[in-house]
């Protein structure tokens, strides 16, 4: 099993050839699981070339752990994880499917015991089926949903305690939430690291954009300086956890994306 260490980058179709041929350092890559599960042709060929060069982590968007796990999806994910010899897989604390319909988005749950139990149960099932660790990511939320009994940190702690899953801490998501829900990101990060620091297994960094009404987790820009400040705080508390730069919309040339990776790596290396 290949080791995931350092600062990686999201492997996206637009920059795939550039990543596969660049001479610049790329420590590891994350693939979107759904772009490869069950697909032949070009995705399969890209995956083979990618696995020849990089350690790969499948990062999903449709596990929908608040819904009962879909056995077919888990089977596909299991095959994918085995194919790339993934050290772990990851997905989000959310729901993305209801009534058999996929919403193609990460939708929020109430921060309550019932939701935590369901997500934890799905996470346990996922880990059993895959035989690999699962990391769960904090999402952006534009509202605290009715029925929330706890704050998000407590909600995440309950899920991680009950499931044994690790935390994929998306620093940008915490920052985006702080802007949209009007809280202090630094104070929230301190609170989260105090409660969950030992659970942090990976970090996500990306750039949000403003749509005129709210800050959106668009992965469409450079990582803001304040996010890098928060990232540094995470590394100080958790040590050099694997970190990934995501760029998913308005993707620039591969060298621009790798400049962002280098920027994050310069921070990461101070704690390596």
């Amino acid at each position: 099993m290949r080791t995931v260490r350092g600062v990686g980058v999201g492997f996206r179709r637009e920059i795939a050839e550039g990543l596969l041929t660049t001479s610049r350092p790329v420590d590891w890559v994350e693939i979107v699981s759904e772009n490869f599960i069950g697909l032949e042709g070009r995705p399969r060929e890209l995956l083979r070339r990618c696995a020849d060069r990089f350690a790969i982590v499948p990062h999903g968007v449709t596990l929908s752990p608040a819904t009962a796990p879909d056995p077919a999806y888990l089977a596909g994910l299991s095959e994918l994880a085995a194919r790339v010899d993934a050290p772990f897989v990851s997905d989000h604390v959310c729901f993305s499917r209801t009534g058999g319909q996929e919403w193609l988005d990460l939708l929020p749950l109430p921060f309550c015991a019932a939701a935590a139990r369901r997500v934890a149960a799905s996470a346990r099932t996922t880990q059993e089926v895959l035989g690999r660790p699962l990391l769960l990511e904090n999402i952006t939320t534009y509202a605290v949903m009715p029925g929330s009994e706890w704050d998000e940190t407590t909600f995440l702690r309950k899920i991680l305690e009950e499931s044994g899953a690790g935390l994929l801490l998306d620093v940008t998501n915490l920052y985006v939430n702080s802007v949209n829900l009007a809280f202090d990101p630094h104070a929230r990060m301190e609170e989260l690291l105090t409660a969950l620091g030992p659970c942090v297994r990976q970090v996500h960094l990306s750039g949000p954009t403003h749509d005129g009404q709210r800050l959106v987790d668009s992965h469409a820009s450079a990582v803001p300086a304040v996010v890098l400040e928060l990232f540094e705080r995470v590394l100080r508390a958790c040590g050099p956890v694997p970190t990934l730069v995501e760029w998913d919309a308005r993707i620039p040339a591969v060298d621009t994306v790798l400049d962002e990776v280098d920027r994050a790596r310069r921070v990461w290396e101070r704690f390596a």
Binding site: D105, C112, A143, V144, M145, P146, G147, E149, D151, A182
Partner: peptide, 30 residues
């Protein structure tokens, strides 16, 4: 169903109505 907006201890700026953004967001996605 027991999901009361008043049970939330957090997010002073949020209101029960703000989840209304999600229909717009999922539509935007597909």
């Amino acid at each position: 169903a027991g999901f009361s907006p008043s049970s939330s201890p957090v997010a002073p700026s949020s209101s029960p109505s703000t989840f209304g953004v999600y229909r717009e967001l999922v539509t935007r996605q597909w």
